[in-house]
Amino acid sequence: MAILIDIISWILLLAGSFFCFTGGVGLLRFPDFFSRIHAASLTDTLGAGLILIGLMFQAGWGLVLPKLILILLFSAITGTTASHAMAKAALKSGLQPQVVGSVKSESGGAPSNS
């Protein structure tokens, strides 16, 4: 049983490291600021999430587990908000995203049913 938990957490840690590394490479490879944010959010969501969940399997029951959950929660919320703030500040300061085109939703999003 203990070996099974160890194996699961090792797989999660390795997968998390892989996603973090992918995000780091994307940060260097992508051509413009707005596409680099996507690479950075890759490490923020699944990279951090998988590593922290892998650590949770190692932690067992105790005070360490809720602390790891708190770190996961905080990093998800603050990472999102920081990405949005950076993108908005860059746009407001006049940095134009390099895009191949733009589309507009004609239907006006979801039909509100109430």
Binding site: L27, T43, S75, M86, L95
Partner: peptide, 13 residues
């Protein structure tokens, strides 16, 4: 902004 993004990413790591 690229630098700020990189520093933020450095912090989360």
């Amino acid at each position: 902004y690229d630098r700020i993004l990189a520093v933020n990413n450095f912090g989360t790591k």
